[in-house]
Nucleic acid binder design. Structure first.
Lengths: 232, 232
DNA sequence: GGGAATTAAGGTTAATTAAGGTTAATGAAT
DNA sequence: ATTCATTAACCTTAATTAACCTTAATTCCC
């Protein structure tokens, strides 16, 4: 998926070069000469990053930056400007900028700073499965955050318990998940009833996951489950 | 808790100024003249950010940067250098730098860039609604202060309760909002009646937000709601 | 030692109960 | 006189409990 850059710049000549260079690098670029109807633009275009000139007709770049930061707390914003006074730079960062590049700059520097900002804004890797975006399970796509299991475009809605248990199994994909630990993780105890209860959920999950026979939840009696998933 | 800066710089005079300025700003600074025993340093000092001069005796800054990036994928690294060639900058970013500052620089700029890197590295905070007058919710724009939800130019007026509940959901966007806490936050108790009452409001909000199917309020029975919003 | 009896562990399906959803009616506050 | 908030009555669905079934592992006996 192409990353989208919203680029606001009034100098036509520079704008053209930047836009073309970005497009050559594989970005989708929306260039505007001023910040009019910014909020609409953000919503319809939904950029991954904004590159703003500071000296603009009508509304200046800093104001636009603040607006963006206000509405999209996480969206990277790079300011471009000939203003080189320290106070301008400070203003840039306090207006929600995540980087500040002084004109004149080389195209390469802009490119690498854009890449860098996108990398920094990307979801942090070290997060546990709770915050994890999506996991590929064979032909399925599991989105713990959305409580969904997707296969060939059809979406299976999971309940919170189902999703919770599947998440735990995923954490031990192709290894064994201890039954007792699973029970404790989900219910906080390993009573007889919850043990039956777990059986019920395992059956449901097996059922949901039956469309890919590379995926199996193997029972290891007295131990737990071995969740086999191809290609993890 | 003081943020810790690991600062590697061989120019004694500059180093002293930077160190003192940082300390004045409330940072804990460990200054070294070279990158010897870097790995030990990182582990014992466990800095929140590294500031590296590039031109160093023995091992150069880029090499140190790469080492850091390998071991600590998320740790911010700012390069400081008189090298101003584009190729040097590219090298800085490809060596795991998260920012690059050309010498000579103003202390203020260094300070603000350090702050900025720390902010970017910080675990993504939920947009604290209090300070925002507007939040983008997918195709919608929510203005808690005005009790308005806007979509494609049309304005949906929210009642105070509706707005209040939506604000709370926004605070936990893409995470789960505890039902009990929600009830307490809004009504101060979790009586049966208010619980039904909450259901009523959730239904209304689902209805208002139904025009963007990236937005969902998922019920987690026994827990609460998971408000999913794209791009937050 | 090899195969039937025993038993513990888990599986299946259905019933129950608890949590929440929906819609409409009532009550409070402008 | 409306608009918003609450209460009410009834509906739907997830989670749990229950009853009964199957399978793997021991044990027992010859």
């Amino acid at each position: 998926m192409k990353k989208k850059v919203l680029y606001i710049e009034d100098e036509q000549f520079l704008a053209r070069i930047v836009k073309e260079t970005l497009e050559l690098k594989g970005y989708e670029v929306l260039h505007k000469k001023d910040g009019g109807r910014l909020i609409d633009l953000l919503q319809s275009f939904s950029p991954d990053i904004c590159v703003l000139d500071v000296m603009l007709p009508n509304i200046d770049g800093y104001t636009l930056g603040s607006t963006i930061r206000n509405i999209y707390p996480q969206l990277p914003v790079i300011f471009l400007t000939a203003k080189t006074q320290t106070s301008d730079i400070l203003k840039g960062f306090s207006s929600g900028g995540t980087d500040y590049l002084k004109k004149p700059f080389s195209m390469e520097e802009l490119m690498v700073r854009i890449e860098n900002q996108l990398k920094l804004a990307a979801p942090k890797e070290d997060a546990s499965i709770e915050t994890q975006e999506e996991v590929a399970l064979g032909k399925y796509l599991f989105s713990p955050g959305r409580y969904e299991l997707q296969i060939k475009g059809t979406i299976i809605k999971l309940s919170s318990r189902e999703s919770e248990i599947l998440s735990i199994l995923c954490k031990h994909a192709n290894k064994t998940t201890d039954r007792k630990k699973l029970l404790y993780a989900v219910w906080g105890d390993d009573s007889f009833f919850n043990s039956r209860n777990l059986d019920v959920y395992i059956r449901k999950l097996r059922d949901y996951l039956s469309q890919d026979d590379g995926i199996t939840i193997i029972t290891l009696k007295g131990k737990g489950y071995h969740f086999t998933v191809p290609g993890i």
